[in-house]
């Protein structure tokens, strides 16, 4: 089963977690065989929200929702079950500064 671990950080903590920690963790989870993909994101000021309504594309500057904690990055991981996914999510370094949302990946029903 695949899980997406979304890393959320508040503005105050956006740069609190050293990149070197994240890099070291990425190597560790890669070696464990649980990693599928991971990326860090640019700050929310660079975000654009795209919507299509009645065939018209509309753009909004900024993220979808202005919440206190913003999406800062993600890990797409493979785990046997939610317990294992939670185990790996708890090891993601920014978990100490912000929060990690763990979302199961849904298979398309085709």
């Amino acid at each position: 089963m695949n899980y997406l671990c979304l890393v959320y950080l508040s503005k105050d903590n956006w740069s609190s977690c050293p990149d070197s920690d994240c890099f070291a963790f990425a190597q560790k989870i890669q070696e464990s065989g649980h990693m599928i993909a991971a990326q860090a994101l640019q700050p929310i000021e660079s975000a654009t929200t795209v919507r299509v309504r009645n065939g018209q594309v509309s753009l909004t500057d900024g993220p979808f929702a202005e919440t206190k904690e913003q999406l800062a990055g993600f890990y797409l991981i493979e785990a046997v079950d939610l317990n294992e996914a939670i185990y790996w999510a708890s090891k993601i370094p920014p978990a100490k500064y912000g929060s990690i949302e763990v979302r199961p990946i849904r298979q398309l029903n085709v």
Partner: peptide, 8 residues
């Protein structure tokens, strides 16, 4: 079921 919480 959806998040696959294990029965253990």
């Amino acid at each position: 079921r959806d998040a696959k919480i294990p029965y253990q």
